[in-house]
């Protein structure tokens, strides 16, 4: 990795930290503590289920909100405040800027998710007094969630490379929702005909498949996934990210920074 990408990433991370983004961890901790105490008192047998479901869903939602709302500002804020001018007038290529921003926010999200993972395990330990071997799947679920964050970040970055922050947020959010309902879209492909069918087929391959990356419920029931799925899901996420970021770079390289 070029040292410039690293420095831009580090600065992005520093910005997130100084803008108190990690304060969301406090909200997360409160939510999980409350849930753990409440669940520990009232439900029998399904404490683990509730803690895993609630904990992982919160990890996903908190992270996606951060990915979208910081992601859309990564480029546009620097243009608006003209800080980008002083960066690009240095020996920094535009693609390095995009890559650095992506790595920086990804790093922030990984750190954030790691802290949350510790929280989930603490809550799990609290409600069931011990950890089981199958709890290791929770880590895989969080890993898949992090892959979702990275894709969302790339999408936010892509949209913000050519449209306004508000529109970028709307587009990214829509794609996130569509990606979460990817399975239903697939069902539609099976039932539709003609033009509709082909449009649905294109949509299925164009939108990110978050359904495959969501194993929260399986994990909550103590079921794992195959190692093959972990590997190919990772490959899919990375290739999808490369596609989105290359698109962002092509657009950004052509852009006049008026």
């Amino acid at each position: 990795m070029s040292s410039r990408i690293f420095h831009i990433a580090a600065n992005t991370f520093r910005e997130a930290v100084r803008d108190r983004v990690l304060y969301n961890l406090i909200a997360f901790a409160l939510l999980l503590t409350g849930a753990a105490i409440l669940v520990g008192q009232i439900s029998i047998q399904i404490e683990r289920l509730v803690v895993i479901n609630l904990g992982l869903t919160a990890v996903a939602l908190f992270g996606v909100v951060i990915a979208i709302f910081i992601g859309i500002g990564l480029v546009s804020k620097e243009i608006e405040k003209r800080t980008l001018y002083t960066v690009l007038s240095r020996p920094v290529a535009r693609w390095e800027f995009i890559a650095g921003k992506f790595v920086g926010l990804s790093g922030t999200l990984v750190v954030n998710a790691s802290c949350m993972a510790v929280g989930v395990f603490a809550a799990l330990l609290y409600v069931s007094r011990q950890l089981h071997g199958s709890d290791a799947w929770v880590l895989v679920a969080i890993y898949f969630i992090v892959l979702q964050f990275l894709i969302t970040t790339a999408l936010a970055l892509f949209f913000s490379s050519f449209s306004s922050p508000l529109l970028s947020a709307v587009f990214t959010f829509c794609l996130f929702v569509a990606g979460s309902f990817a399975e239903d879209l697939r069902g539609f492909v099976g039932l539709s005909h003609g033009l509709q069918h082909w449009m649905a087929v294109i949509a299925v391959y164009a939108i990110p498949n978050f359904s495959a990356l969501n194993i929260i419920n399986q994990v909550a029931h103590g079921n794992g996934v195959s190692g093959q799925l972990v590997f190919w899901n990772t490959a899919y996420a990375l290739v999808y990210i490369v596609a989105v970021l290359s698109g962002a770079i092509v657009i950004f390289e052509y852009r006049n920074l008026k």
């Binding site: 910005e15 405040k81 003209r82 002083t86």
Partner: peptide, 10 residues
Amino acid sequence: PEQPYFYDYL
């Protein structure tokens, strides 16, 4: 740049 504005968290 004209009327510069920098990363104000630094």
